[in-house]
């Protein structure tokens, strides 16, 4: 890949975050991610995200070829701002959950998941 003569090229992860928050500030914490420290099979990594006070959660896999994993919007019938699912991780990386709060602010937490066998391609 040729080097681009651009000083500060935004990464796909930066782009994904900015696309979601519109560049707004993101508070650290307030989101709980439960995921295995070590995932033997990157094809199916269980993850639970809880974010009290959130109306929406954006899940981003910072080390995947395409960072976005899913956007979960909680409606008026929701019992709690919580989602558990299974995701693909291509390699060891930080998984980032950004919560959009009722007042429109954002909060996020990241956890590292070590992946033994990657879940992309193959």
């Amino acid at each position: 890949v040729a080097m681009l003569p651009v000083a500060a090229a935004a990464t796909p992860v930066d782009d994904a975050i900015a696309a979601y928050t519109g560049g707004a500030a993101i508070a650290e914490g307030g989101v709980t991610i439960t995921a295995p420290e070590i995932a033997e099979n990157g094809n199916t990594v269980p993850i639970t995200i809880e974010a009290p006070g959130a109306v929406e959660i954006m899940l981003i896999a910072t080390g995947n070829p395409t960072p976005n994993v899913g956007k979960f919007t909680f409606g008026p019938g929701s019992g709690a701002p919580m989602i558990a699912t299974r995701m693909r991780l291509g390699r060891t990386q930080d998984v980032l959950a950004i919560a959009k709060m009722e007042d429109g602010s954002f909060a996020s937490t990241a956890v590292e998941v070590k992946v033994t066998i990657g879940g992309c391609g193959g």
């Binding site: 094809n43 199916t44 395409t66 994993v69 956007k71 909680f74 008026p76 019938g77 995701m87």
Partner: peptide, 15 residues
């Protein structure tokens, strides 16, 4: 008829 969850999913969601 009341929305509980609306999820936009990407290819990184497992099979």
């Amino acid at each position: 008829g009341v929305m509980v969850l609306d999820a936009a999913l990407e290819p990184a969601i497992s099979a």
